[in-house]
Write a protein that binds this DNA or RNA. Structure first.
Lengths: 153, 153
DNA sequence: TATTGTTATACTCTATAACTATA
DNA sequence: TATAGTTATAGAGTATAACAATA
């Protein structure tokens, strides 16, 4: 059996990443980064980063949602959401109205312009999805979503 | 003219995240964050964040790997790797030796202490994996890894 | 007393420019 | 001229503390 000890100093030709590839966290992060990189490029026409898109999409699908609810749903801390919401408002995509039941809270609503943009952006995101998962069959795509949700839900 | 009756301002009871849950990027990121959160807690005894662990693990499994190779394998920019490698060296987990073929490069090697710690840490990470994927069967776990790799490889 | 939204601020992570030494 | 490693620094992302208004 050959000793792997001090012979000539070895050097690495092909990096062995086999161990890391057994870890869900490693793989999930790499996959997320790959998809997000593509998202940033393809959604730049709408001036949406993933976080802007996520916030706008939740407001679009949940008229009257509050900042606190957005924070909980997206794991964003309240101070970090303020600029995001104000940014969407300045772009005319959402409006604020008093919450009917709670004077402390503010309901967030997509404007007609916001609704139009989100319908378009969500369609683009769905197409981007297909491109990002182009090596997956439709069944594999569905399975992947289901298994990922089992991890974090 | 009777003022147009605004429909009573709605408010959201249960946030609808169905659309976002159709996106690979959203789910992969949520899953990665959930696993990483657990990793941070459980690996604190070894003083390893995910990035420290990944770098140390690749050096452990690839004696003589260079900083440049680590950067490529882990998508880390060279300036951001310097402190990581120096930190592992200061902890006595790795050593630097001249690269046999390239005077510009530096080969990185786990020390005996580093090898002992990594064997332990990788075992802990594997156990953590099982806990993080506790809602997955062994077959689902294997499928998840395979599908994630199809997305980013 | 607790919660919503907010400001200010600190900390971490990631990205860019430029230098040195070797190839 | 190009590449490996490094420094300094800028920018983005994430975190904590504290406050006013309301519950």
């Amino acid at each position: 059996m050959a000793p792997k000890r001090e012979s000539p100093a070895p050097f690495v030709e092909n990096v062995d990443t086999q161990y890391l590839e057994t870890l869900i966290g490693y793989n999930a992060r790499r996959a997320a980064l790959a998809v997000i990189e593509r998202f940033l490029k393809d959604m730049a026409v709408h001036d949406f980063r993933p976080v802007d898109f996520s916030v706008a999409s939740l407001i679009y699908h949940n008229p009257g949602i509050t900042s606190r609810q957005l924070c909980t749903a997206l794991s964003i801390l309240p101070p970090n959401l303020v600029a995001l919401v104000n940014g969407l408002q300045k772009r005319g995509l959402i409006t604020k109205r008093p919450h009917p039941n709670d004077g402390r809270a503010i309901g967030l609503y997509a404007t007609p312009e916001g609704e139009t943009l989100m319908a378009l952006a969500e369609q683009d995101a769905a197409n981007l999805e297909i491109a990002a998962g182009s090596r997956l069959t439709a069944a594999e795509h569905k399975t992947l979503l289901r298994l990922l949700q089992k991890v974090y839900l």
